[in-house]
Simulated scan of single mutants.
Amino acid sequence: MRKVRMIASGRVQGVGFRWSVQFLAAEIGDIYGRVWNNEDGTVTILANSDSSEKLSQFIHEIRKGPSRAAKVSYLDVTLGSFEPFTDFQVKHM
């Protein structure tokens, strides 16, 4: 199981970014996690998958910006250390 923590910067709040991330995870399949807005204007994504290939594809698509209005200027990706998720949810803060 691979787990990653991503922090997306740029135009990522107020543009449907979190919902697009959730949709992308479902579209690729076998991607589970959480996504939420941060007070500093960034978005955090925790994701896990049994498929390294699918997780790499997910990260690649996030870098491109999964919604038409979003623009990811920087994506920090690190290894995650969290309990694996079994679904993908948008957290409301």
Rank of each mutant, 00 (worst) to 15 (best):
G16A: 12
D87V: 04
T44I: 05
G10N: 10
Q57Y: 00
H92S: 14
W36F: 14
A69L: 15
I7M: 12
V35M: 05
V35N: 03
R5F: 10
F88Y: 10
R5C: 02
I31Q: 10
M1Y: 11
K64V: 03
V21G: 06
G16Y: 02
A47W: 02
R5W: 03
V90C: 12
I45F: 01
G65K: 06
T78Q: 15
M6E: 03
K54I: 00
H60R: 15
M1F: 10
R63G: 02
K3Q: 14
G14V: 05
V15D: 12
W36S: 12
G65H: 03
V15P: 03
Q89S: 08
S20K: 09
I31M: 08
I31T: 01
S49P: 03
V77A: 13
L75C: 06
G80W: 04
V4W: 01
L55F: 07
L46Y: 05
R5S: 11
E39K: 12
V90W: 04
G14C: 07
D40Q: 11
A47D: 07
G14L: 06
G29I: 05
M93Y: 13
G80A: 14
S67F: 06
N38Q: 14
L24K: 12
V90P: 02
V43F: 06
Q13A: 12
I28T: 05
M93K: 13
F17I: 09
L24M: 10
Y74P: 00
D40G: 05
H60G: 02
P84E: 06
W19Y: 15
R11K: 15
V12W: 00
S67R: 08
N37L: 08
F88A: 12
F82G: 07
F23E: 13
G41M: 09
G80D: 06
K64L: 12
A69G: 10
N37V: 02
K3I: 09
T86L: 12
W36N: 10
N38D: 10
S52G: 15
P66V: 04
R34K: 13
D40Y: 01
S20E: 05
R5G: 04
G41F: 03
N38F: 00
Q13H: 12
Q57T: 10
N37T: 00
P66F: 08
S73C: 01
A8S: 14
A70M: 04
L24H: 07
K64E: 15
H60V: 04
L46E: 12
D76G: 08
S51K: 07
T44V: 10
K91R: 15
I28R: 08
G16R: 03
Q22I: 02
L75S: 11
S81H: 15
A69S: 14
V35K: 06
F88P: 07
F82P: 04
N37A: 08
Q22V: 06
H60Y: 14
F58N: 06
Y74A: 13
Q22F: 01
E39L: 05
V72K: 06
N48V: 01
I28C: 05
S9D: 09
V21K: 07
A70C: 13
A25L: 07
S52Y: 10
L24P: 01
G65D: 04
I62V: 15
V77I: 07
M93T: 09
S52C: 11
V21W: 02
V72E: 03
L24T: 04
V77M: 11
S56Y: 01
V12G: 02
D87S: 15
E39R: 12
I45H: 01
V15A: 13
